[in-house]
Design a protein around this nucleic acid. Structure first.
Length: 366
DNA sequence: GGCATGTGCGTTTGATCATC
DNA sequence: GATGATCAAACGCACATGCC
C-alpha cells in the first residue's frame, strides 16, 4: 500500500488530529501543530521518493486570497493571492487578554513577601515587567550587563526628571535568534539594545552590592580550598543568584517562582512582555482615546479610524518593536488587535471595516 | 520544593519570490 | 533596490507529570 496525500494525509491523519485521536488528552490539536505535522510527513514521504523507496507524491496546490497590510496606499491594506498546499488549515490568530492591574499587584506582593527568596525574585519579576525582556534573557543577565560603575551607564536623557531617565543596556546572552557560541552555559545570541529605567538600574546596582554578595558568599564557602573558592567566585558571572544556594537562576527557575506565587490565570513571564507593550500603548493612546470617544458619540468615520490606526502603528514601530527586538510584523500586530478589542472598534485588520471601506470605494467609483 | 522530561504550541530567522 | 509577503527550520516558552 502506498500513502496518498489527499486520502491518507489529509483525509485520515489530519482528520484524526482534528478529532483528538493523536493528542495526549484526546483534545483536538491546534491548527499550527497539525500543519507542522502534516508538513513533516510530506517531507518524509518526499525523502522516501527521492531514495526510490516509493513513487513520488503529488501535493495539490490551490490559490488563496488574503488581505495584507500595506501602509503605502490609502486603504492601508491590499488583496494578495498565493499558492498554498491544498488542505492546509488556517491558523487562528492570538487574542490577548490580561489579568487586572490589582491582580498583578497582589501577585507581585505575594512574590516579594516570601522569606529569603522574595527580594531577589521580586527584582527579577520587576526587571521583566519594566523592560519586557524574555525569561531566558533575565536568567542570563550578567553581573556586568549593567556596567559595574554607574558613571559608565549610558543615560539617554540625563536632562529629564529622574523617574523618566533611561539607561541603554546591551543584551547578547540568551537572546533569541542565531547562535554565535556558548559562554558559561548560555547561548550567545544576536546583540540587542534595550532601555532600562534609571530607578530600576539603581535597584539592580544595590542588589549587586548587597543581596547578591551575600548569596555568592554562600556558594564560595562550599569551596574547600582557597583556589576552589576563587574559582567559584570567578565562574559566577550571572547577576541573579539563589539566596539559599548562591547558584544562578535558570529560565525554568524563573518560570517556577513566577507560577508558585498563585499567579492570576494565564499570567506568565512571557505574557508580561505583551503586558508591557499593551500598557505602554494604552498610556500613549490616552489623548487619541478621548478624540475617538467624541467621534463615537456622533458617527464613526473612516478618517478617524485611519488616524487612530496610524498612531497605534507608529507607537508600535518606534517604541515597542525596538524594545522587544526583532519581533516580526505579524507578532506585533496582535497589539493593534488588542487596542481594537479594548476600544470595541474594528481597525484595519477587521474584515467589517475593510468591507465597509470597500463598499464605500465602490459607491464613489461605480 | 526542586529538578528532569515530554508534549504542545509560539516566536524568530533566513531563504525565496513578487511587486513597486 | 526596497519592501513585504510566504514557508521551513530552529528553538524558546507554558504546562503537566513524575521522581526524589
Amino acid at each position: 500500500m502506498t500513502l496518498e496525500y489527499s486520502q491518507d494525509l489529509i483525509g485520515r491523519y489530519q482528520v484524526e488530529m482534528l478529532i483528538g485521536i493523536w493528542s495526549r488528552n484526546n483534545k483536538p490539536l491546534a491548527e499550527r501543530t497539525i500543519n507542522v505535522r502534516v508538513e513533516t510527513a510530506v517531507d518524509f514521504l518526499n525523502w522516501a521518493a527521492d531514495k526510490g523507496l516509493r513513487v513520488p507524491m503529488s501535493i495539490p496546490k490551490i490559490q488563496r486570497t488574503y488581505t495584507s497590510s500595506n501602509l503605502h496606499n490609502s486603504f492601508g491594506y491590499e488583496f494578495k493571492t498565493v499558492a498554498t498546499r491544498q488542505g492546509k488549515l488556517r491558523e487562528s490568530k492570538r487574542h490577548l487578554g490580561f489579568p487586572s492591574t490589582e491582580e498583578i499587584a497582589a501577585w507581585y506582593t505575594r512574590l516579594s513577601r516570601r522569606p529569603v527568596r522574595g527580594i531577589t525574585e521580586a527584582l527579577i519579576a520587576e526587571l521583566i515587567l519594566e523592560t519586557a525582556i524574555r525569561r531566558e534573557e533575565a536568567a542570563c543577565w550578567r553581573i556586568d550587563t549593567l556596567p559595574l560603575a554607574p558613571a559608565d551607564w549610558r543615560i539617554v536623557n540625563p536632562q529629564a526628571a529622574l523617574e523618566h531617565q533611561v539607561v541603554l543596556v546591551d543584551l547578547r546572552f540568551g537572546t533569541k535568534g542565531k547562535e554565535y557560541g556558548r559562554d558559561h552555559d548560555d547561548k550567545i545570541g544576536p546583540t540587542g539594545t534595550i532601555r532600562l529605567p534609571l530607578l530600576l538600574a539603581r535597584k539592580l546596582h544595590l542588589y549587586r552590592e548587597t543581596q547578591r554578595a551575600k548569596s555568592l558568599a554562600l556558594a564560595v564557602r562550599r569551596g574547600r580550598t582557597v583556589v576552589e573558592q576563587k574559582r567559584i567566585r570567578d565562574e559566577t558571572v550571572h547577576l541573579f543568584l539563589k539566596p539559599r544556594t548562591g547558584t544562578r537562576y535558570t529560565g525554568d527557575n524563573i518560570y517556577e517562582f513566577w507560577r508558585s506565587a498563585a499567579p492570576p490565570k494565564g499570567w506568565s513571564p512571557h505574557r508580561a512582555r505583551d503586558y508591557w507593550a499593551c500598557t505602554l500603548l494604552w498610556r500613549r493612546m490616552e489623548r487619541q482615546r478621548e478624540l475617538l470617544e467624541m467621534a463615537l458619540k456622533t458617527k464613526i468615520d473612516a478618517i478617524v479610524l485611519q488616524a487612530l490606526q496610524s498612531n497605534v502603528l507608529s507607537i508600535i514601530q518606534l517604541e515597542i518593536q525596538p524594545q522587544l527586538r526583532h519581533a516580526s510584523q505579524e507578532t506585533t500586530m496582535i497589539y493593534l488587535q488588542w487596542v481594537a478589542d479594548q476600544l470595541g472598534i474594528n481597525l484595519n485588520l477587521h474584515e467589517r471595516w475593510i468591507a465597509e471601506l470597500w463598499e464605500g470605494a465602490e459607491e464613489v467609483e461605480p
